[in-house]
Design a protein around this nucleic acid. Structure first.
Lengths: 201, 201
DNA sequence: ATGGTATTAACCGAATCGGTCAACGGTGCT
DNA sequence: AGCACCGTTGACCGATTCGGTTAATACCAT
């Protein structure tokens, strides 16, 4: 992509990024028109083609950006250093919501890209996704010290419950129209404390 | 739509319905081509236009069909007569999975249609959706008899937990590639029993 | 005015779209 | 064999949209 893109004021860069995320998240690669992205970003199609040589380049650039931002976000969220599983999950959702404020459609874009099959981008897309998809998603049960939990508690089921509810939150935030993010976070905090009172010894 | 459509063998009708659900669920109305739907259904575009005069007619027909199927499914699921909230939720998910077996993309289609804004279909679409969207979604806490639950339990949070986890299940079934439905159901059953052991007195 | 830079309107050929229509193949009747 | 019927399709049409190019703007500092 054109170096000039980086010299743009950050706000304008983000407008273009978000426009790309949004359009590519809503439609497949082939059905995401460049003029729609340009309009969404508030610039002309010509200018968009000035910064990015063609659609493929923009698409792959967005994917790299999404990967980069996600990794950086996970790192500084501190949810890996945290040993308390409840606070770990809380920090995880906190990180996701923070990201969603700045780039509302990025995660939807990344998810859709993960299943993109278009020949024009498929191969190079996989190369970008592969290392990044190996990042431990917290689907599987992490190691837990059973002594802090109530006796006889099925930790596997406990974790599944919490994980699914978190997924449910993320789902609502993306599919249930525009949402008051702060409200969601405070609701989630209450739920976390509810779990602590239920599960902890 | 053409009467002849109903005289088709049911399997072929369903193939056409599912093709429509699938394509319209993946793209917006305007970006869902008729030839793609026809190909997905294994028939020619001409034949599709023989059964449905134009794209708008097919789209609205699918919406009506989705409404009709959903209502019928909810009715016979028996999840309304059930007073036990745990069994109610279980029956609810059971009903949804049953529907998802026959019409895998119907609910995704209905959800997308709910947000469709295209001028060509917007108005007539709303007329179809309106009465049907008033069906009580079980987002809000139903009336519960506190005496059967553990003392001091926050019923509001309990229900929120269960509701969100169920949403998480539905989310996984639609966005996490093809899934073993039976496995999901049995997992969910285990979770329900887990909740009963946690929450019931 | 001048020169450089950011930005765009206008345009191009190719592809895709919704929709039409004449023809095709099979089946049963005569 | 011929004929009529019916489900089905390939080929086609005009209109629109697409990715991408280019020549010309608007803007701003000298």
């Amino acid at each position: 992509m054109n170096e000039k893109f980086y010299q743009l004021p950050e706000e304008k860069q983000n407008r273009i990024l978000n426009a790309g995320f949004r359009v590519f998240a809503r439609n497949s690669y082939r059905k995401s028109p460049m003029n729609e992205i340009a309009a969404e970003a508030g610039i002309s199609k010509s200018l968009l083609f000035f910064y990015f040589r063609n659609k493929k380049e923009l698409y792959l650039f967005l994917m790299k950006k999404a990967e980069e931002l996600t990794i950086a976000n996970l790192r500084n969220s501190g949810c890996y250093e945290e040993s308390d599983i409840f606070e770990m999950m809380y920090r995880g959702l906190l990180a996701k919501t923070a990201m969603m404020r700045r780039y509302p459609d990025m995660s939807a874009f990344a998810l859709k890209a993960y299943y993109e099959e278009d020949e024009e981008v498929k191969d190079e897309l996989r190369k970008i996704i592969e290392p990044y998809s190996k990042l431990s998603t917290n689907k599987s049960l992490p190691k837990l010290d059973p002594s802090v939990f109530k006796d006889g508690l099925d930790l596997q089921l406990m974790y599944q419950d919490m994980y699914l509810a978190s997924e449910g939150y993320m789902y609502q935030m993306q599919h249930a129209g525009p949402i008051d993010v702060d409200r969601v976070v405070s609701d989630y905090r209450k739920l976390i404390d509810f779990w602590k009172s239920l599960y902890l010894r």
